[in-house]
């Protein structure tokens, strides 16, 4: 299988006054196209930091981060935006929907920045909402949706510009276990149907079980790896 992602000695340091926090301290990993990988670790181990680097939200202090062979560390800010816009799609623990926009408008947002024609935006957003099971909720605002429904909208939004890689950061962290299971089932279904690559961050072994491969992060380093059981 083709390689999608590779990091080489990836470092991300935060300067806090006089001390330096090494949120990532030499991460080297590889991910193939179509893989579903879970990134595990305790709170503060650097999972979100790594995910943000892969998502083009942040830049490494040192090391290389290759996406399809191109080093994100050397991207211009415009290239970073293009990467966020069309190469990856991100889903967050706190959904991060825009409160005053409807579900449909939230899903259309990435397509506005991709300058897709308005008609196409609406059609595709409607399709995506159907796919995540929210066909009847298009006109609802986030406050009128349950947590699980909001996260479905967020997943639809992440898929809007047909990214190659879906990134999820603790996407069930704010959900009860039954809803969490539904969301995970949705992800697994999407992976099975479309073969889309997925990188999922969690601190919960049971959630990580949906992935094909698990990476364990501790103090900014990959400490072990396990295949699906």
């Amino acid at each position: 299988m083709d390689q999608l992602l590779q990091t080489v000695n990836l470092q991300r340091h935060y300067h806090m006054g006089n001390s330096v926090v090494r949120a990532l301290d030499g991460v080297s990993l590889e991910m193939a196209e179509g893989e579903f990988v879970a990134l595990l670790g305790t709170s503060g181990s650097g999972k979100s930091t790594l995910l943000n680097l892969v998502g083009g939200m942040d830049r490494p202090t040192e090391g290389a981060l290759l996406f399809r062979g191109r080093n994100l560390a050397q991207f211009t800010s415009g290239e970073m935006a293009a990467h966020r816009r069309s190469s990856v799609g991100m889903v967050f623990q706190s959904f991060n929907l825009i409160p005053r926009k409807t579900a449909l408008e939230n899903v259309m947002l990435p397509m506005i920045f991709a300058e897709k024609p308005p008609g196409e935006r609406r059609r595709r957003a409607q399709e995506l909402l159907e796919r995540v099971g929210l066909a009847g909720r298009a006109a609802h605002r986030p406050a009128e949706l349950s947590g699980g429904e909001q996260q479905r909208v967020a997943i639809a939004r992440a898929l809007a510009n047909q990214p190659e890689l879906l990134l999820a950061d603790e996407l069930t962290g704010n959900l009860d276990s039954r809803t969490a299971a539904e969301i995970l089932a949705l992800l697994r279904g999407l992976h099975r149907e479309t073969g889309k690559s997925m990188l999922m961050v969690t601190h919960d072994e049971r959630i990580a079980a949906v992935a094909q491969r698990r990476l364990y992060l501790s103090d900014g380093k990959i400490v072990s790896e396990a295949a699906a059981t």
């Binding site: 800010s77 966020r84 069309s86 991100m90 825009i98 947002l109 990435p110 920045f113 510009n161």
Partner: peptide
């Protein structure tokens, strides 16, 4: 601020 973060996360450029 948060909304701007969201827009950037889904692909808005600084110029946008």
């Amino acid at each position: 601020t948060r909304e701007i973060g969201v827009m950037k996360a889904v692909g808005a450029e600084d110029g946008d």
